[in-house]
């Protein structure tokens, strides 16, 4: 079981967290056409390699945060705030 570095609690078992998926901005609900909106709902890049993702420390501090994770190696870096901005103070390899 991998460790995930919570910006508030430090490295914890990944089972403490809920995965929110790739960070995707919510389009303007009043101007988005169907294609844009459904991309937001259903389409994910699913890239092999680094991706910025949202996580929720459900069984911990209950904070949402974003982090970059390498999906082929599970290395992590650049943990940040929910809006996706990396926070240099917390960045670093989880290992």
């Amino acid at each position: 079981m991998m460790l995930l570095p919570c910006p508030w609690c430090g490295p914890r078992n990944v089972t403490e967290f809920a995965y929110r998926g790739e960070n995707i901005a919510r389009p303007d609900p009043n101007t988005a056409d169907k294609a844009t909106w459904r991309d937001y709902l259903y389409y994910r890049s699913n890239r092999a390699g680094w991706e910025r993702e949202g996580w929720f420390h459900r069984a911990g501090c209950r904070q949402f945060f974003s982090i970059e994770r390498n999906r082929t190696t599970n290395e992590t870096r650049g943990v940040g705030t929910p809006d996706g901005a990396g926070d240099a103070a917390h960045s670093g390899d989880s290992r």
Binding site: A18, R20, R26, G54, F56, R58, Q63, F64, P82, D83
Partner: peptide, 13 residues
């Protein structure tokens, strides 16, 4: 509860 926190923390901090 999680839903409420999600919208507050991620969309409208």
């Amino acid at each position: 509860w999680e839903w409420v926190e999600n919208w507050l923390q991620t969309e409208h901090p």
